[in-house]
């Protein structure tokens, strides 16, 4: 092999490697962009662990086939949702929480996790109320979301907020994250022009109290070795009952 042909050979190899690297990087960028920079979308029940869902979903659309309410659809190119994955828009058609979870049954890969046994344990998202536009929060008697909610009186409860004498009390809906499945029936039912209650990604709105806070007046606060509800606020001679009474009554200590 002469020097020239050897140089040509190495040039060709380098050129080939450069083309492969450029193409590979562009492809990698595309994948990363799709899987991480895409908009959040509501997934079928059991598809909450998003990395696993993205990896396992083979984009076959059998869940879409199986959905009896035509809720699910596959993301087509150009909607800023990872291509070919199933999702739904609750304001159009919400998830009606079939007890037999046919979409999960249809999924051949386990992207829609078979660990979900009870549809009430699904956490597709979290309903969130815009209290500035919610009719009930303005003082009207609406409460449609509360009545439509499939997890009746658990995911959404109505609390009454007394007001001054000239006005009647407000009956306002409150969402409880412990029970809300994110099915979006409330969002579909909301009568405002744009829904005042919406299903969003739980991480967008959910805070976390932190382990170091103790709500001493809550009887279900766990009593640990480091902490008992009576420890912090009570002075010697007071019982736990007295301390709890203090919080619930207007009388002074």
């Amino acid at each position: 092999m002469t020097n020239t042909s050897r140089r040509q050979f190495f040039t060709r190899v380098t050129q080939g490697a450069a083309v492969a690297a450029t193409g590979g990087l562009a492809w990698f960028y595309l994948l990363n962009e799709q899987s991480h920079a895409s908009a959040w979308a509501i997934r079928p029940p059991g598809g909450e662990a998003i990395d696993e869902f993205y990896a396992k979903c083979i984009k076959c659309g059998k869940c879409v086939d199986a959905c009896p309410f035509d809720t699910l659809k596959l993301a087509s190119a150009g909607v800023n949702i990872p291509i070919g994955t199933p999702y739904f828009v609750p304001r159009e058609i919400p998830c009606y929480m079939c007890l037999d979870i046919p979409c999960q049954e249809a999924c051949p890969t386990g992207a829609i996790s078979s660990n979900l046994e009870d549809i009430n344990d699904a956490r597709m998202g979290l309903a969130t109320i815009d209290i500035e536009n919610c009719l009930s929060w303005q003082g009207l008697r609406c409460e449609i979301c509360h009545r439509e909610c499939p997890v009746q009186n658990k995911a959404i409860t109505i609390e009454h907020h007394p007001r001054r004498l000239s006005k009647h009390a407000m009956f306002v809906p409150i969402v409880h994250g412990d029970h809300c499945t994110g099915c979006g029936v409330c969002e579909k039912a909301c009568p405002t022009e744009k829904a005042a209650i919406r299903v969003v990604k739980p991480e967008y709105v959910q805070g976390k109290i932190g382990e170091h806070y103790r709500l001493g007046w809550k009887t279900d606060t766990p009593i640990t070795q480091e902490f008992t509800p009576s420890q912090s606020t009570t002075s010697p001679g007071q019982s736990t009952e007295q301390a709890l009474d203090y919080l619930n009554q207007d009388s002074s200590l």
Binding site: L31, Y54, I58, K59, K73, S76, A77, G78, P82
Partner: peptide, 23 residues
């Protein structure tokens, strides 16, 4: 950690959109 070709495949894209709706 995702199926690299399935996420860009023009074949799957074409086939899916013919069946499940055009995008």
């Amino acid at each position: 950690g995702v199926a690299a070709f399935e996420w860009v495949s023009p074949i799957a894209m074409f086939h899916r959109e013919l069946i499940f709706g055009i995008g």
